[in-house]
């Protein structure tokens, strides 16, 4: 999603104002001018300035209202591409939500298979990868590097 200078500037300026308002709730150090709010406040103000600069720039160029606020990327027209992007994001979400219940092996096997199929890879390639990749990663990270990967039914059965 590509935003016009005007829209981007507005968004950035609003964010800057939000930061400035929020840092007012930070405590002050008695007798000190510069507390926890100082640095974030400075950043908030700089966001505001950048936002205003973008808006003013687009108004001066006369593009403020003629330009579309947001340009859809070309791949939005390709339904498969959209699904692939959604699939990528959802699989990260799915790992975060599901892996504590299903365990590492099962979650990664399902995610690998799902993603590969979504990319249009044939089953002949998908099946060996969905079996070998989780085992390989489990071997490397859990056994080799001693990372406590989430355990599920398959781990209990195998290890």
């Amino acid at each position: 999603m590509r935003f016009s200078d005007f829209a981007l500037g507005l968004g950035v300026a609003v964010f800057g104002i939000a930061v400035l308002l929020h840092v007012r709730t930070f405590p002050e150090i008695p007798g000190m001018q510069y507390g926890p709010a100082f640095f974030p406040g400075l950043i908030g103000a700089a966001f505001l300035i950048c936002g205003v600069a973008l808006v003013v720039g687009s108004v001066v160029r006369g593009a403020a209202l003629t330009e579309r606020f947001a340009e859809r990327p070309a791949w939005f027209g390709d339904r498969l591409a959209v699904w692939r992007a959604v699939g990528v994001v959802l699989s990260v979400v799915a790992y975060a939500l599901v892996s504590p219940v299903l365990g590492f092996l099962l979650t990664v096997a399902l995610l690998t298979a799902g993603l590969l199929l979504l990319m249009g890879v044939r089953w002949v390639v998908v099946v060996p990868l969905m079996v070998l990749l989780p085992l390989f990663l489990h071997y490397g990270f859990a056994q080799g590097l001693r990372v406590p990967l989430p355990r599920g039914p398959l781990e209990l059965l195998l290890f």
């Binding site: 699989s91 990260v92 993603l115 890879v121 990868l129």
Partner: peptide
Amino acid sequence: VLMPLILV
């Protein structure tokens, strides 16, 4: 094939 593996 590569992208799903990198994501994992």
